[in-house]
Write a protein that binds this DNA or RNA. Structure first.
Lengths: 67, 67
DNA sequence: CGAGAATGTAAAGAACACTTTACACATGCC
DNA sequence: GGCATGTGTAAAGTGTTCTTTACATTCTCG
C-alpha cells in the first residue's frame, strides 16, 4: 500500500511531530507510515484524510494484487 | 466505525461464506465486520470497496470523535 | 563549537485484525 | 423426522498496528 503522507505533510511544512499531534498518534507512527513500514488502521486512515481534506482513495493506493 | 457491509451483501443475496471467499478472508471475519466487532485493515477495506464498486467513504463511516 | 530541532531506528509490550477448529441454533426442504 | 444451508459465537494462536523509552545522526543557527 503506497501513500502520499510525506508529500502532503511537506507541502504544509509540518514536522512529523506536528502531524502526529494533530492525529493523536506517536511521532514514530507517522514515521513508520511515511516509510511504508505498515499501513494505518482504518480509523487512522480516516483521520488522515480528514486532516488533509482529501478522500482515503486520494491518499492511499493499494498494491496491485497477486495472481 | 459503522459500515454497510451486511446491507450491500444482502442486496446481492450473497451468503457470508460467499462474500468471505470473494474477499479471501474467513467467514468469521466477515461476520465480525458486519457485527461491528472490529474494523477491517485498510487493505481489506479497499478490497471490500472494490468488490462492491463503491468508495471506502460510501461503505464505512467513522464514529463522531470524543472531546 | 555547542544547542536545538527534525528524522530514523530499535526493543518490548499492549491492543487489534485475522485464522482454524468447533459447536449451537434456526430455517427450509425432502 | 432428518439433512443441508446460513448465521452467531468461543478459544487459542499468529501477525499487524501502535505505544513508550531511548539513542544516533543530520542540519541549522547562534
Amino acid at each position: 500500500m503506497n501513500n502520499r503522507i510525506q508529500e502532503l505533510r511537506r507541502q504544509r511544512e509540518w514536522s512529523q511531530a506536528h502531524l502526529a499531534a494533530c492525529l493523536k498518534v506517536s511521532r514514530q507512527t507517522v514515521n513508520a507510515l511515511e516509510r511504508g513500514r505498515y499501513d494505518p488502521s482504518l480509523p487512522l486512515a480516516f483521520s488522515i484524510a480528514k486532516l488533509f481534506g482529501l478522500t482515503i482513495e486520494e491518499i492511499f493506493q493499494p498494491d496491485p494484487e497477486e495472481p
